[in-house]
Design a protein around this nucleic acid. Structure first.
Length: 140
RNA sequence: GCUACAAACCGGGUUAUCGCUUCAAUGAAAAUUGGUGAGGAAAGUCCGGACAGCAUAGAGCAACACACCGGUUAACAGCCGGUCCUGAUUUUUUAAUUGGGAAGAUAGUGCCACAGAAAAUAACCUCACCCCAACCCUCUCCACAAGUGGAGAGGGAGAACGGUGCAAGGGUGAAAAUGUGAGGUAAGAGCUCACGGUUUCGGUAAGUAAUUAUCGUGACGGGUAAACCUUGUGUGCUGCAAUGCCACGUAUACCAGCGUUUGAGGGCUGCUCGUCCGAAGCUGAAGGGUAGGCAGCAAGAUCACGCCAGUAAUGGCGUGACAAGAUAAAUGAUAGCCUCCCGAUUAUUUCGGGAACAGAAUCCGGCUUACAGGUUUGUAGUUACU
RNA sequence: GCCGCGUUGGUCAAGAGGUUAAGACGCCUCCCUUUCACGGAGGAAUCACGGGUUCGAGUCCCGUACGUGGUA
């Protein structure tokens, strides 16, 4: 089991997988659906054809964290947790030719521990997985 | 050695695993390999530049900034050295360290609450003297009701008003016309004199100069220019979201105003001028589209070391180095060990917690603010040893 | 990134360098009323913070903190 996972794939987070298009972000904020899973608020939308099946962005409010150092720290933790756990969602999207844009916003007002971020990210991704499954089922 | 102060510098290290940015090589591609990757403040955006556009960057006014002296620089309100004034600290007290200031108040205007006679023209009160009415005393003459009245002369007394002196004094107040003593006077006064104080000008000595010392001469009329202002010097305006190019995409409908050679409007400046564009549209309002890429953009007032000039800031020469370039924005995450700090336990140790301030966005020179801990140097104090 | 503007009771705010810092709404205390409301009397401000100029700063100057606007 363990051997298979390590050989199977590399857990990367490349430039193509980052949500960078200003236009798509605007659409996402205007029309995208959302749910909140404290301390995250997650926005998502099924998009047109794109260079990668899943594009993601991360944000931290400047109101809660005034120092750039703190914002960077939280974004890095979120990115790391996402990178290590996103594989299953990407796989299902790939299989069915779906494209998705997701945005994570940190709404808490304390700098979190890495452990906490991983746990919460896991549950958030699970929920996203469920949503995409439902969407695929509705299509077919 | 310890303590205090000041200056300069450093501001975690290492191993493993998994990632990110960018560059190079290989490859058809996927990718692989190798290099590379935050700061002293990257911060605040407070000054000064470089660079770019605006006409070739022009003129005047306005506006803004600066202001002891010398040096330094690409430039500055910075920095270095010095002079004077003023506050704070310290038993080196005629000193040291440090904070703040220093063009002009004799160019003009304004303001100075309350209190006070008065806040700047010197007025007012008070004071002294002169003039002088009432009044008092004495003498002479006249009248009669016989001790009073009137007139005149002399003397005393000196109110109010007025005149002269206009100086000192006047409970205040942050601030009131140079302080003390003597002379002088009707009373007084820098009115005069002596010793001082502040200061203009001139001479001499020292210094590049600010200035200092000293001599002579004159003056002595508050404060405030971080009030307006005057003088001198400087600044054209806008900023890399500047600017140039490529790609993609749309639509200018309706309304209002101005104008069509008699010149609307525009060229990123508050106004005026000048100048250029403009042979017909322009502006406002409303609406539509795009918000992708490349250049700018990483070799420079660059950094490190050494030598030389200089008190220093800084400059010159030589050698070596190439040292982030992202764009919803990389420079990281986890674990262990070492180092340091705090707490508990304490011969050692062990356990728990923590790792200063803080994250490039066109680039430099400064300033300001934040900063655990450490290193070095200098000065002062103190103690011990030789 | 770059360029601006502001900060006065709980809130909205006025305030030519000069006595004890207007006003409105709200809050608290007391009076009136059987009680509530209305009405009346009174109270509450480190003028964001730290320096400086001045005899004297909410006001003028410098710095800091916080808030806020514009800009492809």
């Amino acid at each position: 089991m363990l051997k298979e996972i390590t050989i199977e794939q590399r857990l990367t987070f490349k430039k193509e997988e980052k949500l960078k298009s200003r236009k798509l972000i605007e659409v996402l904020f205007k029309q995208g659906a959302s749910f909140s899973n404290f301390p995250f608020r997650v926005l998502y939308i099924f998009s047109e054809k794109n260079i990668a099946p899943l594009q993601t962005g991360f944000a931290v409010s400047g109101k809660n964290f005034k120092k750039a150092v703190d914002r960077n720290r939280i974004k890095r933790l979120m990115r790391e947790a996402y990178r290590l756990q996103k594989s299953s969602l990407t796989e299902t999207l790939k299989k069915h030719g779906k494209f998705m844009a997701v945005f994570f916003i940190y709404t808490g007002n304390k700098i979190p521990e890495y452990k906490e971020v991983t746990e919460k990210m896991q549950s958030a991704l699970k929920r996203l997985n469920k949503i995409s499954d439902e969407a695929i089922a509705a299509d077919t």
